[in-house]
Design a protein around this nucleic acid. Structure first.
Lengths: 335, 335
DNA sequence: CAATATCGTGAAACCGATTTCAATTGGCAT
DNA sequence: ATGCCAATTGAAATCGGTTTCACGATATTG
């Protein structure tokens, strides 16, 4: 049924070894033989079976990227960066979603064990430090966007703490003293780091931390609404709210508007990520931009460099953020 | 270095054939032999190499889904549906993005030729009818969300024309007579079908079609802004605007608000897709919902059924839409 | 001119699994 | 005790490539 390298060899009147050499430019082949082979390939419509090839070479040139969910447009540019970097080295990126499920993640990582892919990139993971470190000893893996404390694994993230610090510091410089934060209670170090940045900004500006000003929920947009309700129920509601994601920020903004607030005047809201939504919203949402494309490129470049050199650099790379000013944040005005 | 089936066989004191039988439950193996094998597998930490396995079985149990871009959250539920349906049959879904590039798409489809995957699903494609039909003769492929006229290929979409008809008919029933449409000039039949639904609704309600009421750009959100400017520059601007996507609708709404319009009162805007954004926007955007999860499930179920039966049903399946009413559409009020 | 290096080539081993086929074993009926 | 059948089992073929190695032919060197 399918045309194999043997058929090509027969049609070209050469051995399979010669065909293979032509396919891979792996050794000198006479011009006439090469021409015969190429003609045969064209005539027969031959395409090499990668299962045979990969089995022999013990490599697939495929890198698996596991994303928690496709719900956030956030990953779009990261993936583009990954794919560009990968294709420059002859690799392909395959995506799969884990739905933040430990079981699904393990099932997907099985593709590493069974050699379907050469490496895996985890954009957020449910695995613990030990599992990750062990995994990294046997295989090529990397963490992206979400670090894991103590895991000795190649990791590329934005400067979460720095970005949060800069955003909150900016709010303070604009006169805000009562600043709420919408964070998560889930086991996520990016949230934790952003909280640290928030706290540092308060501290450096001589503002006391108030526990009731930190709301912890999940990444789900519904928690933006709940956070806003919580803050506005306080005796002294904050005049500005810093959110660990644009989705949560948009949700806070929506609720604020529906309650009759003028966002950017009565209350300021700042997000994180700079996804399309923050640009499109009315009012535009001030946010901390992640260098998504570069994050994607960097993690793949480092990973392929490890593969090619047979090393495990396990670098921890932190890329710079950028503050994007829009209309959802304004000068503090005492009423 | 790596532990193979041979190592397991040696450790368990049986032949590789017996190990294989245990791995696949393919034939009767004595309880004692099975136990030895399982112990050896556990002790050695053995995981079968799928390249060898797949090479021999001529199957990978992997389906490739090619999405034009990850930019639109729209695909999230479709992919979830695909993955659920796939895993029920022991398949995995791999995603890749083509960035709407013909070249990238062909490079990805190469995974079909080289047997890296068993089948491919195209969510939008740059390929022409002949290429698709030929491809479908040699391999298992399917179209999802975006049909191609005349392509004899399994296709699953929403009822684009029906959804657009219902949305525009609703606008008319609410008193609107001057209705703009934001469409695309790109080669996309979903846009075309939605235009047909728009035209049909006008016709059935005895409203003359005005060419200047149809703006054609691309899917890029910037075209929402341009469309709005175009419409408002007309001598008789429309009182309602129907958009072929929520992204474009949100962009129209943003521009309208920034121009001082009260969306839902001064002007009505309706989208298509029902992505998260349409819910989160202020005002909430009235839209036509696609049954994304079911679309994903259905296309995978049909595809796997084709693979298992060795058939090519090439069905054209159209799933029902649902109108979601929010605040961006209101009764026509003559000013 | 002899000795040696280089080039092009094919036969065969190999990657790691599955599957066919034949052989061995044990149980049961006669 | 003999014959027959079913249940286990392993040797070997196979999937489709890549790569090693040996060999003959040609080119280069002293």
């Amino acid at each position: 049924m399918n045309v194999t390298i043997k058929d090509v060899a027969k049609a070209a009147g050469v051995s399979v070894a010669t065909v293979s050499r032509v396919l891979n430019n792996s050794a000198a082949v006479s011009a006439s033989a090469a021409e015969n082979v190429n003609n045969a390939i064209r005539e027969l419509g031959y395409s090499p079976n990668f299962l045979g090839r990969n089995l022999r070479k013990c490599e697939t040139n495929v890198i698996l990227a596991i994303i928690p969910s496709t719900e956030q447009t956030f990953y779009s540019d990261i993936i583009r960066g990954m794919q560009n970097a990968a294709s420059e080295s002859g690799y392909d990126i395959l995506l799969s979603t884990s739905n933040s499920s430990h079981n699904v993640e393990m099932r997907l990582l099985n593709m590493l064990f069974n050699r379907t892919v050469d490496a895996a990139i985890l954009l957020g993971t449910q695995l613990d430090v030990k599992t990750l470190t062990d995994l990294n000893k046997q295989h090529y893996i990397a963490l992206c966007c979400e670090r894991v404390d103590g895991a000795d694994v190649l990791t590329v993230t934005v400067d979460d703490k720095g970005g949060a610090f800069a955003a909150v510091d900016k709010l303070i410089k604009m006169g805000h003293r009562k600043i709420g934060m919408v964070s998560t209670s889930v086991n996520s170090l990016s949230s934790y780091d952003r909280e640290q940045g928030y706290k540092k900004a308060l501290e450096e500006n001589g503002i006391n931390l108030r526990e009731e000003y930190i709301y912890r929920g999940t990444y789900d947009f519904k928690h933006g609404v709940k956070a806003f309700e919580h803050f506005m129920g306080l005796p002294e509601p904050p005049s500005a709210i810093f959110c660990i994601s644009d989705i949560l920020a948009a949700s806070v903004v929506k609720k604020a508007i529906s309650e009759g607030y003028s966002v950017g005047n009565d209350i300021s809201v700042c997000g994180f990520d700079n996804i399309l939504l923050s640009w499109m919203y009315t009012p535009g949402i001030t946010t901390v931009e992640q260098p998504c494309y570069d994050i994607g490129r960097t993690v793949v470049e480092e990973l392929i460099s490890n593969i090619n050199n047979g090393t495990k650099s396990n670098k921890k790379i932190m890329l710079p953020y950028k503050i994007i000013e829009r209309e959802s944040v304004g000068q503090y005005n005492a009423q």
